[in-house]
Every structure is written in structure tokens, then in C-alpha cells.
Simulated assay, not measured.
Amino acid sequence: MTSGGQGPYPPPWPPNGGPHPYLPPRAPLWRRLRDGEWPPTRELLRQLGPRRGCLAAPLLCCAWPLFFLVLTYPLARSARIRAHAVFPPDGHQRLQDPQVLRVQQIRAWIALAASLLILSVYGTSEDWNEMQEQFVFRLVLTPWLLLLTAPLVLVLLFRLASAHRRTAMRAGLRTAVRAVLCYFGAFTAVPLLVLAATYLGRDMNAGVLTPLVMPALMLPALWMLFFVAFSSATVVRTAFSTTRVHAALPALLAGLLVWELAGINLAVSGPPPGPPLIQLAALVAGPLSVSAVAWWEIDRLRTRHGVGLRG
């Protein structure tokens, strides 16, 4: 017995409700959100409480931001969980190559830095606004280009593959078709839900409750919009889980899509700002670098994993 009368062992938990001494400290909120660990709404509000004065001040100055956060964050979190359950971000990667992933990330950061540098030196305010519009345009257009391009590449791979390999590819093709139907079903459901909510809200004689009825009717459309947004990143990166059909298919699609997007951007928005030599480099360097990395990935699949285009 010790002098405090607590026995020879210390208490399992520290006094005053402190954290357990043997548990690692939790990461900051911004890092958890960045890494995809979205906490529940109650924990989020507790993290943004009075102890986080710099974060809570904008919310406490007006009730609408807090109301919007409480209303939309649970929808976004639920849609994100469901989107990752239907389209697993890492479920498609049967053959992971850390060096390829590292090179892809470095190439993406260099391309972003080069675009920002060109805009900073030669761009105008209209060019900056156009860059934001192009980002949204690509995000919406890329899944549809995938839907049109993937069947052509699949036909080519089926013709190259042996008869034994075609049987295994057909089994993986069913998973890709289900992913396509699920994604574009959700994509189509967004405008239909908006139209249905608008039609119901217009016909309902809610009187003073109209400002509350319309947001409530829009909640399904908002949830579906979050689902499509969170699914799009995975769908574009995994090419509708087509790795199950052929391990080289996402790389082939990436090499083709980047040239299609470059041609569409040139036709819609025109060349980037700057002298002719800078414009030519900005137009060609991006697609060439993506195609080079994609071809290098296909070569590593053949040399390190024995996966060639013929099977």
C-alpha cells in the first residue's frame, strides 16, 4: 500500500478525465479530413467549439453557416461512406507499384505548377476564371469520355488476348458494367430528383412553411449530388474498376483520355496564354508526359508482373 491508499498500481485512467497515457494522440481535424477520416457531426462540432476560437468565430458570427454545416455535413459524410462502399478507392488495385504511383504524383504536381506559372506570367483575370471552369468541365466530361472510349479499348484487348484469357476478362467485365450502370444511374438521378422536388414544391400549398419544405424536398437530390461527386474521383482513377478486366486497361485509357481532353479544351477554350512556343509546350507537354508514364507503367506490368497486352 502506498501512502495515498491506492495500492501498489497506478489507476488505469489519469484523473480529471484526461486521455489514456498509452494511446497515441489523435491527429488534428484538418489532417483527418484530408486523409478521409470524417468524424461524426457531434465530434466535428466539438472540435470547432470555443477552444478552436479561430475556427469557430466565422460560425458564431452568423447562424446560417452553422445551420448549413449541421445540415449538409451529415449528408456529405453519409454519401461519401456509401460512395466508397460502392466504388472502393483501392479495391481495384490488384497490382500496386509504389514507384509508378510516386511518378504519377510528381508529374501531376509539376503539371499544376507549370500551369500556375504560365497563368501568373501571361494570364489575365479571364484566364484564371477559365481555368476554374475547365476544372469543372473536365470533372463532368471525363466519366462520359470513359464510357465512350473504354469499349473501343476493350474490343482491341479482346482481339489481342488468347481464348483462355478472354474467359477471365469476361468475368471481370461484369463488375465494370455494374459500376458503369450504378454511376450513370446516380448521375441521371440528380436532375430527376431536382425536377421532382421543384414540381412537388410548386404544387404544395405550404404557406409560411415553404422556406422549410423546399430545402427538405431537395435533400435527396443533394445527397445524390454528394454521392456522384465522391464517386467521380474514384471512377476516373479506376476507370470503372476495369483493372479486373485487364491490369493495363487504366493506363491505356489514361493515355487516350488525356489527348481527347486536350483536343476538346483546345476546341472549346482555345490555346493557353503566352507566346506561340509556350502555347505549344503547354498543349503538348501534358498529354505527352501522361502517355509516357502510362507506357512506362504498361512496360513495368510486363517486365515485373508478366502482364502483357495479350494476356
Rank of each mutant, 00 (worst) to 15 (best):
T2G: 14
P10C: 02
W13T: 15
P15W: 14
N16D: 06
P24L: 07
P24D: 09
R26M: 11
R26Y: 04
W30I: 12
R31V: 15
R32A: 10
D35G: 01
P40I: 14
T41R: 07
L45F: 12
Q47S: 09
G49L: 06
P50A: 15
R51D: 15
R52P: 06
A56F: 04
A57S: 09
P58L: 03
P58F: 08
C62A: 08
P65C: 03
R77N: 02
I81V: 06
A83P: 01
A85I: 03
P89S: 08
Q99E: 11
L101M: 06
R102P: 04
Q105V: 08
I110P: 09
A111Q: 07
A111H: 07
A111K: 06
L112P: 06
L117P: 00
S120Q: 07
D127Q: 00
D127C: 02
N129G: 12
E133R: 13
F135M: 11
L139D: 12
V153N: 01
L154E: 15
L156Y: 12
L160A: 15
A163H: 11
R166S: 06
A168D: 13
A176T: 15
V177K: 01
R178V: 14
F184L: 08
T188W: 11
A189K: 09
L192Q: 03
T198P: 00
T198S: 11
T198C: 04
D203E: 02
M204A: 13
A206G: 05
V213H: 04
L217Y: 07
F226R: 03
F227G: 02
V228N: 13
A233G: 15
A239W: 05
R244I: 00
L249D: 00
A251V: 07
E260Y: 11
G263V: 12
V268H: 07
G270C: 05
I278E: 01
I278R: 09
Q279D: 08
A281N: 08
A281P: 04
V290W: 00
V290G: 02
S291T: 15
S291Y: 06
V293K: 04
W295R: 15
L301G: 06
L301R: 03
H305R: 08
H305W: 12
